[in-house]
Amino acid sequence: MMRLVWVLLIVAAVAALFFYGMNRDPDARDKIRSGLVGKPAQNFELTTYERFQPTYGDTFGIAIVQEPLGIEGVTASETNIASATPEQTIPIHNTPLVLNFWASWCGPCRAEAPLLEEMWGKYQSEVLFLGVNTQEPNQNNANKFLDEFNWSFPNVVDAKSRVGIQYGVFGLPETFFIKKDGTVSFKYAGPLTAEIFEREVQKIIP
């Protein structure tokens, strides 16, 4: 019987150590932040959905003018939204940008869709919105999604999901708030609320 007590003591000691280990604050152990915040947004150019082509051109994207600083890194100087028609009424060069990734199969994207249209109505003179459809198995559903919510800001197709990957998108919806100089100010994963949107959009309006 004495031996069993010893076994119990050993097991209890091991248990104490690991339960302690499990209950440490995981954030303190290794803090992980979004790698993109504070860094330049990444360039891309994608095909615009047909319905936006008359207003925004066939393709749409970000082209940040970069100044190479030797071999080690690059910095961004200004955003430059490419490929729009010249008679554009909305400022699309050198403007802050709200970049939203979505897909038709994603429930929360539906949840936040009306909010985005509402905010676009409110801020379109100061901030450009761009929707990127990504990880979409079926484009018919994406078009139905656009019919349903009747977005008026431009949307592009990330057909091979490459841009989503480039931006490290790990869930849908995901929204990037990008400043005029091209740096990412904030990234939000999940459906936006009006409160968060207002708070973050103020930070990128110059």
Partner: peptide
Amino acid sequence: NASGLFVGPG
């Protein structure tokens, strides 16, 4: 996947 999130692109 009720949330619509896809965590991690591949």
